[in-house]
Amino acid sequence: MRSSLFLPLLLLLCSKLLGSPAAKKPTAALFIFGDTTVSVGNNNYIVTLKGSRANRPPYGQNGFFGQPTGRFSDGRIIVDFIEEYAKLPPVPPYPQASSQYIHGVNFASGGAGVLPETHQGLVIDLQTQLKQFDKVKSSLSSELGDSEANELISNAVLHQHRNKRLPELFGQSKTQEAFAPEEYVGLVIGNISEAIQELYEKGARKFGILSLPPLGCLPSLRAANPKADGTCLEEASSLALAHNSAVSAVLISFQYLLEKFKYAYSSGFYAWLYDLVHDPTRFGKQAIHPSKKCVQIGLRIANR
């Protein structure tokens, strides 16, 4: 059974070996699946709510892009830093991508979920994103041949972004009534496991996974804290820790069950943000942006 969970799933395929037949040079390609956290504007091309698009101020106002781009940020997001480190051009949203897809595609949609029923008709859900990837893979096979297209996927790094939508368990009465916290975590883990297995069956072999942050420290849950003092809601953060432990266990089991399955799990993401919230002055101007931490992890996996 799959839940109606919003799955901000960054499933990043980063090829390090494949070049076009003409160039005969190594290149990289990023294929990104997910939601708001990694979206670069797919929602600009679908009929959706105004609040589900990032094509207006205050987005994109820090001067890097010069205008809103569809990123839910005032500047760059994690995937932009990865592209910079990999010396890639910006990976476009799926509707803008060329037919060759040599440098990859971003399928992510703000508010996307595992099931079509999640914001149905207003987002590009995960299963639709996976179908879009199938079309891209077929196009790569036509362009490069089956052998090289398959090599691109098998030598890729899949990076699954954190699931930040567990807070809906604390903010929506229907969700609270339908699931106990432990049951909800189990459904979330089942969704993540199914997505990993499906992409494994399509040829992916390397996976990078980022843990959940301390969810109770999100502004919405701090505001909902019964203490009314702005502190983190520890119940939600504890649920995130349970989720992180379960994901780690799943990945360990996959390593033994699936041939050539490799992974790196960034369990430290929880601690990074926890420290930023509770002791921000210790980081100062020299603090490394969390996005750059993610890049360092992704590049380390790619160079294995």
Rank of each mutant, 00 (worst) to 15 (best):
C294A: 08
Y265A: 05
P280Y: 13
K292A: 02
Q286G: 11
G284Q: 09
K292F: 07
P290M: 02
P290Y: 02
Y274M: 12
Q286N: 15
V295R: 00
H278C: 06
S266M: 13
K285P: 07
K293M: 05
W272V: 15
K293E: 05
A264E: 14
A264I: 15
R300W: 00
C294S: 06
K293N: 06
C294V: 11
Y270W: 14
D275M: 08
A287V: 10
A287N: 11
Q296T: 04
L273A: 06
R300M: 03
K292H: 07
K285F: 10
Q296A: 07
G298P: 00
G284T: 09
I301H: 01
Q286L: 13
V295M: 01
V277I: 14
K293C: 01
Q286M: 09
Q286Y: 12
I297M: 05
V277E: 12
S266C: 11
F283S: 10
C294D: 02
Y265N: 04
W272L: 15
G298N: 03
S291K: 00
K292N: 05
F269V: 05
G298A: 06
L276V: 12
A271C: 06
L273E: 09
A271L: 10
K285M: 13
Y263I: 07
S266Q: 13
T281Q: 13
I301R: 01
S291H: 09
V295E: 01
H278F: 10
L299C: 02
P280A: 12
A287H: 06
K292G: 00
C294E: 01
L299R: 04
V277T: 09
D275K: 14
V277C: 07
F269K: 01
Y270N: 08
I288H: 08
A264M: 13
Y265L: 06
A264K: 14
G284I: 11
K293S: 02
G298T: 03
K292R: 13
Y265E: 05
D279G: 03
Y263P: 05
G298W: 00
L299W: 04
G298C: 02
T281F: 10
A287T: 07
L273Y: 09
R282E: 07
H289T: 02
A271N: 12
P280W: 13
I301D: 00
W272N: 14
